[in-house]
Design a protein around this nucleic acid. Structure first.
Lengths: 327, 327
DNA sequence: CTGAAAGCGCTTACAG
DNA sequence: CTGAAAGCGCTTACAG
């Protein structure tokens, strides 16, 4: 059976308030200190966190809501968050929503009920329901990967990513381009990334781009790419994410189309796998790990009542590799 | 400010015990039910989980200790666990240890302190320290991916996986084989998987196998493969995991060695990516998602005092694809 | 069906 | 430096 603070106090021959004081670094005489320490060690006593939290009315837990667990972006970001949180004696609680928007909202409320100190939200979309929930719970919330004027946000520079990729492929001589994007409900990827790309293309003058929409799933990208690839009009397909690019490559392989000789392909994300495959994929690297750490820093600061810039934008980095042919 | 049960009771004109009874599905008169319901709705009241747990002395939280977050196996398993837990009104708490054994042990104790109802342990290795921790905390623990006679375990049939892969490549005509494995401290992968493989080879008679050790990291596998690949003696390299196989393929690509014409490659795991790349990778599929769900089922049953078979072994499935040449 | 009271394990002023 | 007491928000017998 687990010992309580009263048991310890009794065995040490002191009052529980004294034990509590000892536990929380208050001043205790050398003599009692030793007695208490000894008993605690002997019985392997650990304070009950519920009782502590009940008094303190707060926890050192940060809740993180993620749309999915099986994504490079998510896991890297989580690793960053976890590491930094741990360095600051905070704990990370994860709620996976499996892309279910309703569960995302539920997750926010659940976290609030559990009295987490702050919430990091890796959402794909920010709806009215999100805003309402965030306001209602009265707990600091940090948005990662998406931005919203009313909420503290941390984003990758998607516009820059799109722009640099656009510039790069134009510079490599591509003029007939297909862009495989995602729904505009995802502002970061669906809108900003594409917008940056469009800006680069606009500066080109003689470029032809066709825009297609697909989902974040590789399998769906494979299907969407099928018709495009067969068409053979474009010299390059720009996937809005590495997964989409991977899907496009798959389709090219099955159709015996050589990359990059017959078709160039690019992605966004900088997933590890993109440099393991053949040909290696030209992509834009996002600093997920760093984003995670920064997110943790920011939420901690917010929790502690500190001030954090409302919007933080992280730089990205284009990585030219083998999947793009120079025309 | 958050309302407490006393506030609600007062506003509804009843005692807090009545509100509590209502909350926990006890019998209340229709009249008071309505009053309470109304007030609760109006003030958006949610019970304080700490106070609840403090009384109940338990939570509906299952802690999961994982060695890493950025692995297909881990994320799939976690998704399975999370889904099943959620279906049973349990919550999943994740502790990532980044392959740090000490943090693994700490994680177990931390969870105990937080009074989780049960712990699922995705360990790579079971040491004395693990055993000691598990015994000390007195909370149900389920081991996933590794097995130990003293602990409830859920494993993939690694022996079978190794055996079937061995049989398959022999049957495809391979006789000069390299097996790239991992440390034997990882019993499942380092020992059982290899053992099954050896058994198949032993039945072959005329087969030559060289065993090499590498780590779970793709980058390290790339390095380890370098010398082996240049050597050109083997017709096939069997990677003990898909990541190792991916590393081998990478090395082959950089050395302009064609797969499978000049070198066949296989892996274990059945990661999604293995069917997206070119050539597609022959591998053994592990049912991670199912393992996760089953793990959740088992731990819940253990928590509720039910009985669970000590050792559960999940079938695996070989998936022949393009990366193996028929000689 | 309903309420008063005790208690879960801790912390925090307040005296001494 | 130390202890008695109140209280955090809830649940649970026990009476009525």
């Amino acid at each position: 059976m687990n010992k309580t603070i009263s048991d310890i106090a009794q065995m040490a021959g002191v009052a529980k308030s004294t034990v509590s004081r000892f536990l929380n670094g208050g001043s205790v005489s050398e003599n009692t200190r030793q007695k208490i320490e000894q008993i605690i060690k002997q019985y392997n006593y650990v304070p009950n966190t519920f009782a502590q939290s009940l008094k303190a009315k707060k926890t050192s837990i940060i809740g993180t809501v993620v749309p999915r667990l099986d994504s490079f972006a998510t896991s890297q970001t989580l690793i960053g968050i976890d590491e930094e949180l741990r360095n600051n004696q905070y704990q990370m609680l994860i709620a996976n929503t499996s892309q279910d928007m309703k569960r995302e909202i539920d997750g926010i409320y659940d976290f609030a009920r559990q009295k987490v100190s702050g919430i990091i939200l890796l959402a794909a979309e920010v709806t009215e329901a999100h805003l309402k929930a965030i306001e209602e719970i009265g707990i600091p919330v940090l948005l990662v990967g998406q931005q919203h004027p009313n909420i503290h946000s941390l984003v990758h520079n998607d516009d820059q990513a799109g722009y640099e990729m656009g510039k790069y492929i134009v510079q490599q001589g591509h003029r007939n381009i297909v862009y495989m994007g995602v729904t505009e409900r995802d502002q970061a990827v669906g809108i900003h990334r594409k917008q940056g790309f469009k800006r680069a293309i606009a500066e080109c003058g003689e470029c032809q781009v066709t825009y297609h929409e697909t989902s974040f799933k590789m399998s769906e990208a494979v299907a969407t790419a099928e018709a495009i690839v067969r068409d053979r009009k474009a010299t390059i397909i720009v996937g809005a994410t590495d997964n989409i690019a991977l899907g496009v490559m798959k389709t090219a392989f099955s159709n015996k189309i050589r990359i990059p000789q017959e078709l160039s392909v690019t992605g966004f994300g900088g997933y590890d796998i993109t440099e393991m495959i053949h040909p290696t994929l030209t992509t834009v690297k996002f600093h997920y790990l760093q984003a995670g750490k920064l997110a943790a820093d920011h939420i901690i600061r917010l929790v502690q009542g500190g001030v954090v810039e409302k919007q933080t934008v992280l730089d990205v980095e284009i990585i030219p590799r083998e999947s793009v042919d120079k025309l």
